[in-house]
Design a protein around this nucleic acid. Sequence first.
DNA 1: GGCGTTATTATGTATATACATAAAAATCCT
DNA 2: AGGATTTTTATGTATATACATAATAACGCC
Lengths: 234, 234
Amino acid sequence: MSHQPFRNWQAIQAEVLRRIHAREWPPGHTIPNEADLAREFGCARATVNRALQSLADAGLLERRRKVGTRVALHPVGKATVDIPILRQEIEDRGLRYRYQLISRNVEAAPPHLRTEAAALHITALHWADEMPYVFEDRWIDTETAPDALEQSFDEISANEWLVTTAPYTHGDISFTAQPATGALTTWLNIPDNTPVFVIERTTWDRDAPITAVKLTYAPGYRIHTVIGTGPMAF
Amino acid sequence: MSHQPFRNWQAIQAEVLRRIHAREWPPGHTIPNEADLAREFGCARATVNRALQSLADAGLLERRRKVGTRVALHPVGKATVDIPILRQEIEDRGLRYRYQLISRNVEAAPPHLRTEAAALHITALHWADEMPYVFEDRWIDTETAPDALEQSFDEISANEWLVTTAPYTHGDISFTAQPATGALTTWLNIPDNTPVFVIERTTWDRDAPITAVKLTYAPGYRIHTVIGTGPMAF
DNA sequence: GGCGTTATTATGTATATACATAAAAATCCT
DNA sequence: AGGATTTTTATGTATATACATAATAACGCC
């Protein structure tokens, strides 16, 4: 072993990654403790800690106090998908963005918003290069976001307004494939039952719901992302 | 300002988050530098660094040397979706898993694998509680993963075999909604043109392709995940 | 033997210090 | 003025040290 010292935590991370990758440390294996690794690599324990910590964050290692650090058994691949503002998503593709408000009403909130308060119901269409891109069907809780009532939403979209106005603490999101039905087919100008990609999202501020939105994309839409930009190995 | 000292980096992170959240530091605002914050919070600069670093990782802050730290203008929401092994995905839902190999051939590799070598072409069906769950259409590069040729894949799926055998460095993944056509409709037992959720994934070992797979899920499939388990704020 | 207490151990984190690095600002030279 | 060079500054990272915490192992008592 030539044993030249590893100077930075990235180099250590790379070496650990190499050993996992080369099956020197197979899945389930308990690797040496930080102090030993620090000695072997000729660096401070804090540096080893930094390297292992970030591999643990990435789901590749499992660490428990006193027990030690193990190579993850089922390194669940994790893909992170970005959820940009629609305007940006469209303009990033080099297309011309246009927004069109379809309806704006105050109605009783739908059950999935889980609130007693009235809700602002907005439907709108987002265009890309004069082609319908996505149909937005949104409910905004008027109790958590009362300012929304003063917004007409005929110029700037609720999507954009909320992002810069109503901070959220958490939310949930789901992706499905659905057949297009009803008014949707008119707005997106597609035949009945055409497969469309649907994103449903609800966001909360602590325990209060802010908004629930259903985004129905025109046919051909594709979410694309990469796995393994960070460390990763399997 | 009562100014009680913040003892740990999580507390500092929470306080920074609070200020962003409360619009004391609005989007685009350049926040005080680490040294000043350390003085204000009564802690070491390294502790402030840890807190800000992790917020920057989460996409909430943008940091540049010499320039300083700004609150992100368009805090892109990031949703991380897990990519488990199919057996696990099904069993985690409390359903009985069954695997059925449909075909296994060595053929010329399709163009998107970007290789000259022959490829192993496998199609299979994964069942959940005796209902077709997902149809797998996979190509494996025989040069990068020659061991695959010795596997019959009639008992354990290529999905499972690859995860525990062929480590990858990176990959890409995409989600679409498509109409079901051809043999698919037979295997999934659905009418022609039924909307189905499709995941396409390609994985690489450095510059060599390992496998490309198209997973077509039975109708009703839904990817669900949460945003904001980590810090987050908008 | 079984149960409660104490010691041990690996990770988690805070600290002060030092130096590296990137980028902007100031300076110098022609 | 203008281009090249130096200084300044904020973040990035490595270091030694110290103590906290969680979980196990060892011990001791009845």
